[in-house]
Amino acid sequence: MNDKGILTMGVDVGGSYVKTVLMRYDQATGDHRLFDRQVEKIRKRNPKDVVVDAVAMVLERNALDYERDIAYLASTGEGELVERKTGHFYSMTTHARGGLFLCPGARTVVDMGALYVRAISIDERGRVLDYKMTGQCASGSGQFIENISRYLGLSIDEVGPISLKSDKPELPSGICAVLAETDVINSVSRGVSTPNIIKGIHLSIANRSIRLLSSLKAQEPVALMGGIAMNIGMVDAMEELSREGRKPLRMVTHPDAIYSGAIGAALWGGYRHHRIKDRAAVVAA
């Protein structure tokens, strides 16, 4: 694995999950590869311990030694929880780069995380040009979908496919998570079907995201990244609302979308590794 390029790791500590990736970064050819990935739900554990375990797991699985084999371990998200790291990158920077890696050609990345949604306009190198994000209201977030799925007795993996079965979506309040949760309880008592409730939730979040894209004057293709982008129902809702809008945007996503932050961190880590090395060489000369 070390023949071409260097090995880097990215650790994205989010609100609900710790995502860890192992990558090969090849500065010379630009042929970067994702070798391994690990996602861990934090639950009620100490996030620092979750990070340590996740990194150890990836290293062990690939028979690697941190000191010997990893050129750069980059954190993103709540980076202070990653104690053994080479550097930290801001989550917008990493999602932009990770989105471009997973969906080459993307000009906009929508990072749909546990606590907020952020639309990021990028250039062809993954540089952030502009961004818009939701406020601190939880009703536009992945955590909200998790809460609703728990009330309805569904696992998070079931939510997307069930949403696709909807025939008459029931839209909740788009203003506040607390009100929306009350709406959901009312819907259940009124006998609204689970697919229609779930689809309504997806459309509510998608509506916020589409508004972000519109105020950003987003260019296509739009890469949907982050944990919620793994949800087929959410992607479907985004596409549906985009088609209905004045300027439909082509949406793309990737099965590894949840790792976009960690991937971006690992890639920027590789870039920085070479940059620091080059600078040291100049100083030495």
């Binding site: 550097g87 930290h88 990158f89 801001y90 989550s91 917008m92 920077t93 540089r127 952030v128 040009l129 502009d130 961004y131 920027w268 870039y271 920085r272 940059r275």
Partner: peptide, 18 residues
Amino acid sequence: VGAFADSIKLWEGEAATA
């Protein structure tokens, strides 16, 4: 501050964006 740090680490020598 995070965006500022990244702009220096990754885009040194280029004009700032939004």
